[in-house]
């Protein structure tokens, strides 16, 4: 029986994850570590306690949004590596609103979240516009803008949002996403209301792409630019729109960190990594809304659980970074995985 393509689409990421874990296990055994103890520590550190579950949700929140950002652009055939930079500008924009105003919560919080989305959108508009107008490849522009965002936001934090200090003040209570309810529920983890925003955004992405004319056009441009042009769609407008919406998701991921997890913005020596992990999330999730949520849970669990590995099993937490990188390589190499599935399922017939 030939396997359906839908089945293959589901099987490929699962095989990629298993291969990643397998290679990770081999690395541990070769390095002389106790792999079983390491995975036990990983599991306990992610789901062993309500506190850890809360922390996983906290980590999953920006992962979902970063993953949605990458996935959304991907649907229009664009590769947004700039999620990291768009997230940083969103983070600082949200904190900026959070520290400079004193408003009732019902206005302040939405305003801060909105500012993050707008900042991310503006930052993503640049590569979108340059792609549409000058045919400049968005990958290079977004990489360059990541670094620009890092240095510019650092400068803003130092000279605008504080007097030469390394971090801003805490945001006003009225702009915070913190939730005493979740905190009590999860033994005082940093879990916050952001998760609801992330899930709403996933639904919005699904709705835009699958249920609206705009979404159809965006996907059409991704499938075949020339055919879309011929059919009367405005390709340039759709490219810019796709990047801008992607940037909104990325900016919101920054708001999750700025308004929820940390409550401030600090000068950074390097990238947070959330934007790049978003690429992994989107790829593993097959660029679909539900896939992104599932992949974000997996990677969020891995990342948070990893912190427990050095404590309980003496294994460096970087092992999880290795596993995540391997999973990306295996998903990207899905051609070869599919080829194997084909070979095996054909043999089954004979």
């Amino acid at each position: 029986m030939q396997m359906s393509s839908r089945m293959k689409n589901l099987l490929t990421p699962v095989i990629a994850v298993l291969l990643g874990v397998l290679v990770g296990t081999i690395i541990m055994i070769v390095s002389g570590y106790d792999a079983i103890a390491a995975y036990t520590a990983l599991w306990n550190g992610a789901f062993g306690d309500v506190y850890f579950v809360g922390e996983v949700v906290r980590q999953v929140t920006p992962y979902i949004l970063a993953g949605l950002a990458v996935a959304f652009a991907f649907k229009t055939g664009l590769f947004n590596i700039g999620v990291e930079g768009q997230m940083l500008v969103g983070w600082v924009a949200a904190v900026w609103v959070g520290v400079s105003f004193d408003l009732p919560r019902i206005i302040h919080l939405p305003l801060a979240v909105l500012a993050a989305g707008v900042a991310g959108a503006l930052w993503a508009f640049i590569p979108g516009y340059l792609k549409a107008r000058f045919r400049v490849h968005e990958v290079i522009v977004t990489i360059m803008l990541n670094h620009t965002a890092l240095y510019v936001t650092n400068e803003i934090i130092r000279s605008v949002l504080s007097d030469g200090k390394e971090r801003t003040d805490m945001i006003a209570e009225s702009a915070s996403l913190r939730s005493p309810f979740f905190e009590v529920l999860t033994d005082y983890s940093r879990m916050h209301w952001g998760i609801t925003i992330a899930i709403i955004c996933a639904i919005i992405m699904w709705f835009i792409l699958e249920k609206t004319t705009t979404g159809f056009e965006l996907r059409a441009v991704g499938f075949n630019e020339h055919a879309s042009q011929y059919a009367g769609m405005n390709v340039k407008r759709n490219i810019i729109l796709s990047m801008v919406i992607s940037g909104v998701f990325a900016g919101l991921a920054g708001a999750m960190e700025g308004l929820g997890t940390f409550g401030y913005a600090a000068v950074k020596g390097g990238f947070t990594g959330v934007g790049f992990d978003g690429i992994a999330v989107a790829l593993l999730g097959g660029n679909t809304a539900i896939g992104v949520i599932l992949a974000a849970i997996l990677f969020g669990g891995l990342k948070v659980g990893a912190l427990n590995m050095p404590l309980e099993a003496g294994v460096p937490n970087e092992l999880v970074d290795i596993i995540i990188a391997l999973i990306i390589i295996f998903v990207a190499s899905s051609y070869i995985i599919r080829w194997f599935i084909d070979r095996i399922s054909k043999k089954g017939v004979k």
């Binding site: 390095s31 990958v139 970087e318 999880v320 290795i322 990188a325 391997l326 990306i328 390589i329 051609y335």
Partner: peptide
């Protein structure tokens, strides 16, 4: 394996940092 060049490159960056620090 016909992987997307950019995706593989991103993974190489993550992998390198992970392996080196490990």
């Amino acid at each position: 394996f016909r992987a997307d060049h950019t995706v593989s490159g991103v993974a190489i960056n993550l992998l390198a940092v992970g392996v080196a620090l490990f």
